[in-house]
Design a protein around this nucleic acid. Structure first.
Length: 492
RNA sequence: GCGGAAGUAGCUCAAUUGGUAGAGCGAUAGCCUUCCAAGCUAUAGGUUGCGGGUUCGACCCUCGUCUUCCGCUCCA
């Protein structure tokens, strides 16, 4: 068996991963100990880029929308939170593999399918009994019993047609740990598998203290943790990842209007950043999660195909209602606005929620893979060359401006240092006087610096410098005093 | 998790049938002073992913393990 050739896209993805490591964007976690599966660290330029993406999002949410405020909730939450949210019940599924076909199934799906076929054959009572038995075994976490049930019911794999099953295993997607220093007194708590619940449990705190009126939103960025069975594709699916999400609380009945609004608004956020529209598409969910009445993904064309980048979910009043039930604390809002239909205030209700949730690490990967180019250059003498350049939008580029004295003598470094000092308080700058100027330009290309400024001997005569643009590789002379405003203009 | 493939310096790769690792690029320091990586000098950097086994001797053979990639699978 020969090794299948890599497609150009896969090849490109490998190159992006290598580039990310080589230039200090993303490192495998604990690499000196052979790494830790599906965990990555962000390096000097990676952490700048990630922070810039987060800031751009935060700014667009909490600063550009007067009715959105932010919070920063803890990763640890009361364990009941996850019972209310449904994660305890729905986030851990008993799985089983068929040894012949090597297909994996959720045990409950297999049994439900059998029940459906029984019902179709007119044995509705038998089907109900089967499901009742399954629920009982699931509740008791009796995996042996469940496997016996599969055997008794002669449930087979649809691919191999055999019932050569492995043992049932539980995959709990939530990480747990102990709260409290004394083990026997400890309670099991979970690392949050999503950030959303931190917003829901603070709904009234925020609404009251910030004096918010429906419709309004609460934004948050932060880490979430999922013990994925398979976590792969670089930073696309990690066990520890960062979400940027906003829960928008609306009057019941208006959720579809807001769902449409945020569907448009969120795609616009991406294109406003300069990301290409043709690499985006919507993907409507056909099968909805238990909490949603509408849901879609904004997908991005990664090097390995179109994949989910962001989700827009109409979560109804599911979460707040559940928290009200479990906490016994009312989660309602009093709406003083007049309902034109009745002439009276809308009164008390539990708001509906439209969620926008984007993976920061995925956005990082989208930006990086979109930016990466191995560009062929034709030089003035007709020979060709190649450069690796990251076309990162200037707004979020790790370094905005590189300041380069043409030579490191004749007083040029002093002028360059002066410019450096006047700019570095406003945006991230990089100073370098080593090596030929062309080499320094290429190094900046590799980390996506949009502007380079070169101080030469003419600068001493007329205070002009050369500003060189990353994408077009063109350059022009401008007065040294204009440099700061050119950069600020591009990143505002 | 299953199946397949791969791990040698920061990167790309070498190293006859098994004989105790080299190059280019890159990096660092200096010289040169030149607007798109190409000059000169020097330096650093590897228990060959890790751990056993076979052998006089292992980068090479073998077993295990870790990591990564591909295909399934899973994914609020």
């Amino acid at each position: 068996m020969s090794k299948p050739a890599l497609t150009p896209q896969e090849n490109n993805f490998q190159a992006i991963i290598s580039h990310a490591k080589e230039y200090g964007f993303v490192f495998p976690s604990s690499e000196i100990y052979d790494g830790l599966s599906a965990v990555y660290d962000y390096g000097p330029y990676g952490s700048e880029l990630k922070k810039n993406i987060r800031d751009y999002w935060w700014h667009s949410m909490t600063q550009m929308h007067e009715n959105i405020v932010g919070i920063d909730a803890a990763i640890f939450m009361h364990p009941t939170t996850w019972k209310a949210s449904g994660h305890v019940d729905n986030f851990s599924d008993p799985m089983i593999d068929n040894k012949d076909s090597q297909k994996r199934y959720r045990v409950d799906h297999l049994i439900e399918a059998k029940a459906d076929s029984l019902r179709a054959a007119g044995a509705a009572a038998e089907a109900d009994a089967l499901l009742a038995q399954m629920d009982q075994l699931l509740a008791a976490e009796n995996f042996e019993g469940l496997k016996n049930l599969l055997t008794e019911q002669k449930i087979t794999c649809s691919v191999s047609g055999t019932s050569n099953w492995t043992d049932i295993r539980q995959f709990n997607l939530m990480f747990d740990t102990q709260l409290g220093s004394v083990a026997e007194d400890a309670n099991t708590i979970y690392l949050r598998p999503e950030t959303a619940q931190g917003i829901f449990v603070n709904f009234l705190n925020v609404q009251k203290t910030a004096r918010m009126k429906v419709p309004f939103g609460i934004a948050q960025t932060g880490k979430a943790f999922r013990n994925e069975i398979v976590a792969r594709q670089f930073i696309f699916r990690m066990r520890e990842f960062e979400q940027m999400e906003m829960q928008f609380f609306v009057r019941p009945g208006t959720q579809m209007k807001w769902y449409e609004y945020w569907k448009e608004a969120r795609l616009k956020w991406h294109t406003d950043l300069g990301m290409p529209a043709n690499k985006y598409r919507y993907h409507d969910h056909v099968k909805l999660a238990h909490y949603a009445d509408a849901a879609l993904d904004i997908e991005f064309e990664f090097p390995f195909g179109f994949k989910e980048l962001e989700g827009i979910h109409s979560r109804t009043d599911f979460d707040l209602t559940r928290h009200q039930e479990f906490s016994k604390k009312k989660q309602q809002y009093f709406d003083n606005d007049i309902d034109e239909a009745t002439g009276k205030p809308y009164g008390n209700y539990i708001p509906y929620v439209v969620e926008t949730s984007i993976g920061l690490d995925r956005m990082f990967l989208a930006v990086l893979s979109n930016a990466y180019e191995e560009e062929k250059i034709t030089k003035e003498d007709g020979s060709t060359d190649e450069r690796v350049v990251l076309h990162i939008p200037a707004k979020i580029a790790p370094v905005k401006l590189a300041i380069l004295p043409l030579v490191k003598k004749d007083g040029l470094p002093e002028i360059a240092r002066e410019l450096m000092d006047s700019c570095k308080g406003q945006f991230k700058c990089f100073y370098e006087e080593k090596d030929a100027i062309g080499k320094r330009y290429r190094r900046q290309d590799a980390i996506g610096t949009p502007f380079c400024v070169t101080i030469d001997h003419q600068t001493k005569e007329d205070q002009t410098v050369t500003i060189r643009y990353r994408d077009a590789m063109t350059q022009e002379r401008v007065h040294i005093s204009k440099v700061k405003e050119i950069v600020l203009g591009a990143i505002a």
